[in-house]
Simulated assay, not measured.
Amino acid sequence: MIIAMMAGGPVDSIPSKEVLNDLPTDTVWIGIDRGTLTLFDYGIIPEYAVGDFDSVQEEEMQLIDQNVRFLKTAQAEKDETDMELAINLALEQKPSKLFIFGATGKRQDHQLANTYLLVKVRKEQPDCDVEIIDRWNRISVYGPGEFTVQRSEIPYISYIPLTPEVTGLTLTGFKYPLKDRHIFLGSTLCISNELIKPAGTFSFISGILMMIRSMD
């Protein structure tokens, strides 16, 4: 199962309608708070809507209630963010892929928290490929192993440790290759790399590693 979710981040950071519509037709959509209305604007009716909906007007809430099959509301004062509630719901469905839109924007606290929720997905369901996508970036998180990355129109690739240490990092096919390097939390060694071949690989032995693919 493929699940995609839309949070309430700024619309100008969300990829084009063509990108969203390029997902498989059987993708299950989750609207998160005001992101549900964003999906309506894109011509997508989500299967689920989740959140406290504190940023939604009464008539907008009625529209959501009338169109969404499963509506899960929460109190505004709660321990989890709306994004975490939506990810919990998604993980209950055991997806093979999870795409997250509308998760970046001006609020750095929200953006950072949303990024670290990728670690939650990786730990609780290691077989689920999860990615945050906006107009300029694609953010994903990996556990130990070897992975292939294809060259694309998004040229810059950075690797950032999310654990105190990532061991045995090796990059092949990159402008700046590495072999069996240990990098530590806070290191900028692997920022702004590029592929010089149609495909490259990255591998590491232990830790959790974030990959960010960015436009200029």
Rank of each mutant, 00 (worst) to 15 (best):
K123T: 12
E131K: 05
F101E: 09
S96R: 15
K78A: 04
E92N: 14
R69F: 07
P126F: 04
F53E: 09
I139A: 02
M83A: 13
Q150D: 10
V166Y: 02
G35C: 09
A113K: 00
V56G: 07
Q57M: 13
R107E: 00
V121P: 14
R151W: 12
L162R: 03
L91E: 09
I100W: 02
G43V: 03
R138E: 12
Q108D: 07
T167C: 10
G102H: 11
D41Y: 05
G105H: 09
H110K: 05
V149C: 10
K78H: 10
V68C: 09
F70Q: 12
Q57W: 02
E47I: 01
F147T: 02
P155N: 01
L63H: 05
I87E: 01
P161A: 11
E153R: 08
E146G: 06
E84M: 14
M83H: 07
I157N: 00
D82N: 01
Q150E: 12
Y159D: 00
T38N: 00
A90E: 10
R135F: 07
S158C: 07
N114Y: 08
E165Q: 15
T163F: 10
K78F: 02
I132Q: 05
P126M: 03
E77K: 15
Q57D: 11
Y48L: 01
D127N: 11
K94N: 13
E60F: 07
H110S: 13
C128L: 09
E59D: 12
T36S: 12
A113G: 11
A113E: 05
L85I: 15
Y142S: 12
S140Q: 15
S158E: 13
K78T: 05
E59F: 06
